[in-house]
């Protein structure tokens, strides 16, 4: 009896999963299929299977995008931003979880509160700030401009990252800390040699979330970047709209090309990712 019940519920599980997997996948498949259709077919047919395959659209779009150049720019920005986020906020998370100082809890709550600060109206003051720091404008170098682009992104990632790192580090047993202390390690030694290497899962979590966000960012980079040579992929993507009429197949092909690197990063990191969330978000 119990066995039957178990069997039935397993079957139901698979039905639920398959149904939802289709729902998850459908829009993505639609995007892929549209990239292979003619524009007229995109607008007139609901079928996922193109009547006629137009691989030339993807090839042309790829060439038009000058993919590697802008891909490199996007990689530089995303990697630096994610690197900065992981370094700065893993330290902060460790500080909040495993060390003691005056006003620790208050500061932590203050950081969390910043999470809800609205984003729209801060663009103007940010640009004024970057201007004062020499990080924006026609005379700013690429290094300075990218710094100006990345630092606010790092700042914006603060609250959630600190939250995840702190919670993760608090789940690690106190004995680790004590043992190292007995060995005469300073807090810094403990952080770098013991805690950071243990934090792979949460690094993957914070990394992937922010990689997706930074990679897809559109408004902020279009504000900061003036020199087309420094553009990121999403900024370059808009240059595909060269005709008065939107070419949906070209747009979809461009989106597909842009999203593939993210999917690869995601596939690579997802294994760690889940463990990171388990530890980071659950045991609050």
């Amino acid at each position: 009896m119990d066995k039957v019940r178990g069997y039935v519920s397993t079957v139901i599980s698979y039905i639920v999963l398959t149904a939802y997997a289709l729902l998850s996948l459908y829009p993505f498949l639609w995007m892929v299929s549209s990239a292979l259709k003619s524009n007229r077919e995109v607008l007139s047919s609901q079928s996922l299977i193109p009547q006629e395959l137009h691989f030339d659209v993807i090839v042309n779009t790829w060439n038009q995008l000058n993919f590697f150049k802008y891909f490199t720019n996007s990689v530089i920005i995303s990697v630096l931003a994610v690197g900065g986020i992981v370094l700065v906020y893993s330290m902060a998370g460790f500080g909040f979880a495993k060390t003691r100082f005056v006003g620790r809890n208050l500061l932590f709550i203050a950081f969390l509160g910043v999470m809800f600060v609205p984003g729209v109206t801060v663009l103007v003051p940010l640009v004024q700030l970057l201007r004062a720091l020499g990080m924006i404008g026609r005379d700013a170098t690429q290094v300075a401009t990218y710094t100006g682009l990345i630092m606010p992104i790092i700042n914006g990632a603060g609250p959630l990252s600190i939250f995840l790192f702190r919670n993760y580090f608090s789940t690690l047993p106190g004995e680790l800390h004590d043992a190292a202390r007995v060995d005469g390690s300073s807090n810094w030694g403990i952080y770098f040699r013991i805690f950071l290497p243990l934090a792979t899962p949460v690094i993957a979590t914070v990394g992937i979330l922010n990689f997706i966000g930074t990679w897809n960012a559109y408004i902020w980079p279009s504000i900061v970047l003036n020199n087309p040579d420094w553009f990121t992929l999403p900024l370059k993507l808009k240059d595909l709209d060269l005709q008065i009429v939107v070419q949906w197949n070209v747009r979809m092909a461009g989106s597909l090309i842009t999203v593939i690197p993210v999917i690869l990063v995601f596939l690579f990191l997802q294994r760690y990712y889940i463990r990171g969330l388990t530890a980071g978000a659950i045991r609050g």
Binding site: A92, G95, T99, R100, L107, F111, V117, L126, L129
Partner: peptide, 27 residues
Amino acid sequence: KDNSGFLFVLPAVIIFLVFGLYTVIYS
């Protein structure tokens, strides 16, 4: 020394003071 743990949080605080605080007040 007792508060040296603050040093771990310092970079995050500095980044916020430079790139966050002004924008919040401004807004």
